[in-house]
Amino acid sequence: MASHDPQNANGRLVLKLIGITLGMFGFGFALVPLYEVFCDITGINGKTEDEAAVYTAVEVDTSRWVTVEFLTRTNSGMPWEFEARTKRIKVNPGELHTVEFYVRNPARRDIVAQAIPSVSPGTAALYVNKTECFCFNHQPLGAGEEALMPMQFYVDPQLPEEIEVFTLQYTLYDVTEEAKEASETAALPTLDAVAVGS
């Protein structure tokens, strides 16, 4: 097999194999955006859109009722009180609703929070359209402050028939450090929750 110039043949094959190795190293990292795009299209990891949807005149399906449940939790080390003012709501697909979430920062320091939504079953995530949500931005609260954060949404009438109930859960993370770092390098993060809080 070792033909005319074995040294050369070895060198060429080694280069190819190193190429595969580097390619696969890159592929490992490419899996990150691929995963995000894949989940975005299929909605399988229960993440909702992180940008506001535009409510265009959607035909309301009054013949059908869907129950939406709201759950809240805080990540470990996050001291905020966080609860949904509306625990569950029956909606017609296509109908616009606003629900409110109460937050209070009992700590003695200012904290910036980020809410991460998760829908269960995950396949429903594609059909939850939020026109306004506190989860789109960082939410700062001073020590001892409280606020009401609104979330406006409608359920897409295309929601698969078999889904009669789904749960929308928000987890609050303490991102004070990250927000500080970000604001040092860029402009201040948007501060809209406090203003909205009534």
């Binding site: 194999l17 595969i20 190795t21 390619g23 696969m24 190293f25 592929f27 490992g28 990292f29």
Partner: peptide, 14 residues
């Protein structure tokens, strides 16, 4: 090995 060990290297780097 050359197909997946680099992926392991990637994930530990992350």
């Amino acid at each position: 090995l050359i197909a997946v060990m680099p992926v392991l290297a990637g994930v530990v780097t992350m």
